[in-house]
Design a protein around this nucleic acid. Structure first.
Lengths: 349, 349
DNA sequence: GTGACAATCTGTAACGTTTCAGTATATAGC
DNA sequence: GCTATATACTGAAACGTTACAGATTGTCAC
């Protein structure tokens, strides 16, 4: 053993975390060979490859993320960009779990990048892209003309949007079919004899506001029902605001006999408003609401619900981003989730 | 300009992301000087320091995380370790926002590390520590004798727990005073004339199960009320299970006239169970519940609530971990959040 | 004028990885 | 027995940062 090799041995036998150098010393190979053997490069002999991989597994070698990232630029990070004011609560936890599920057996980590009201929504995206902090990005609260999607497309960074855009640009997305939801809800209410329907919609700036309104309008004319305008509030407004506006609306002459609500928390407010006005759910008015956890039926058994699965959305979004990173065509990474039927409460046996 | 400098210039003027080399070229200084100037090292002249910092700000220099991490081992990452089955939904979103709030103007990123039922809770912690993936860790679902806390203490990695341990070891934590919560709830119910109280507790393995039980028991004997055992379910059980057990309990001869619930979602199930048994909230039985968002009063106005602020918890936990990383004594980074009063519903004007 | 010393700045090496440009050995063609 | 070629492996360099050990000034005492 010459002096050079002795030095290597001294260093590599240190009991810190194993590195390629450690493996190289243990196998008697060069670091380059070890590196290539671990990623199944063809120019490494089959036996050597097996041997290296065996030793690596035995001593629990894990590539140093900083080393890889510095050398290759690959971060092995997916960033989930969230609005700290307006995201739906169950959305956050479910989508995180959905994403986690998918990236669990990949080298990816999930980082959460928040932004608040005061900031330009583009800020966190710019930060991520400029600092190269993530290989892929997931955004929500998607707008028809979304500067974030445009920006990331320009920079060529893989992303997926929760909700669609409408800019004539192709990118991965996952969306719930809110057109179908609103249309189904209208039909269901019409089937119950309701003819004057109010819609508590998503905020105007989001794409699915348009989808929801379109489904609502189309089905209204299909069944011959009419709309009672209720557009002074959206599901982004506070519980108190929605409650107050609902109560006001329900005290009018021409009050609705049916409500459609795009979010569960808002539905609580609508019901409170209805009851503030002295009216009764199921008798004076029916309410169809989206929900992401099965709690609304406990709240008022008269409520009619349609489930939206955010965990599934998270998983789909993660798959889309990983797919794009992996080289798949963005156009093939789009999915739409169809709503189930409108569900009335069924008493447990 | 000699050949050496020319090469440097060529490289540094490339329009990629600015590095120390870029700054060194622009200021005419060495990379070492620039590096030290940026961190206000005393051996750099005051004017040079200002000059470097000005240029850095102008061109938007941001240190490369991989470079720093590789060289120093510092990741600038805080990891939030979450159970994907049993975490309370609002807990996840609020705690994330609380943490985000605190780390917003630091170089820290937040990564979410999930684990599921099938895994040993120690697994994700071991992964984080062995791979050196985070400078600090936040865990929840803390147990009296918590192997995760013990493990991290042994390895010397800064962490904070949501909830306390009881191992005679000192570490940062943030906790809600569940002893006080349960005791206050009992007193309030006693004040309403309720004398046979049932408690829906946290799962036995968690530390705050003990705190809650102790507060419950102490206040029971203080006010001379008695316990109706209800320990076949915990707040970790499914909505259906809790509902069924509650209904069973309420159909017994010696049924409770008061409930205390440690979680809002479970309270929905309790109320459903009460009503399944044909009884009425506020008349036959009163329920005091913790909640983390102000929704229970919309659900049933007769409910009595105590608020627990998870966003605050997230912020406190983040402050604790950062404090420990920053060298503060772990014993000084512990905090307990006192519950507010039990609140009855007040009709909005 | 010399030496000592502080003040300010600099080059080199290293963290762990991958890529580039090889080198050494064996096999085959003729 | 010679070159050509494929196979299996290797060292050096680089990614951006910081720590270490100098190097270059200027100032001051004597």
């Amino acid at each position: 053993m010459n002096r050079h090799q002795k030095e290597k041995a001294d260093e590599a036998s240190g009991q810190g975390r194993p590195t390629l150098k450690t493996l190289a010393f243990m196998t008697g190979l060069g670091v380059t060979t070890v590196s290539r053997a671990l990623k199944d490069a063809p120019e490494i002999g089959a036996e050597t490859r097996r041997r290296v991989q065996l030793v690596a597994k035995q001593i629990g070698y894990r590539p140093n993320r900083a080393g890889v990232r510095l050398r290759t630029g690959k971060t092995n990070v997916i960033s989930l960009v969230l609005n700290t004011e307006h995201e739906i609560m169950s959305f956050v936890s479910d989508i995180i779990y959905g994403v986690s599920e998918v990236i669990a057996d990949t080298p990816y980590h999930l980082i959460v990048t928040p932004y608040s009201r005061s900031q330009d929504p583009l800020d966190p995206i710019r930060y991520l892209v400029e600092t190269g902090s993530a290989d892929g990005v997931i955004i929500s609260r998607t707008q028809p003309n979304d500067p974030r999607a445009r920006y990331m497309l320009e920079r060529g960074i893989p992303f997926a949007t929760h909700g669609r855009t409408d800019m004539g640009l192709i990118h991965p997305y996952h969306d719930f079919d809110n057109y179908a939801f609103a249309a189904e809800a209208v039909r269901h209410l019409a089937g119950l004899g309701r003819r004057r329907l109010a819609l508590l919609a998503p905020p105007v700036e989001l794409t699915y506001h348009g989808h929801t309104l379109a489904g609502f309008a189309d089905a209204l004319s299909e069944v011959g029902a009419s709309e009672i305008p209720f557009n002074t509030v959206s599901i982004d407004h506070s519980i108190e605001q929605i409650r107050m506006r609902t109560a006001q609306l329900m005290r009018r002459e021409n009050r609705p006999d049916g409500f459609i609500s795009s979010a569960a928390a808002a539905t609580l407010a609508i019901v409170a408003g209805i009851e503030d006005a002295g009216l009764k759910l199921g008798r004076d008015v029916d309410v169809v609401s989206k929900q992401s956890s099965e709690l609304l039926h406990l709240f008022r058994s008269e409520l009619l619900v349609v489930n939206e699965n955010f965990r599934l959305a998270g998983a789909e979004l993660a798959r889309s981003v990983l797919g794009w990173i992996g080289g798949a065509a963005p156009g093939t990474l789009q999915s739409l989730s169809e709503p189930g039927e409108v569900q009335a409460y069924r008493r447990p046996d």
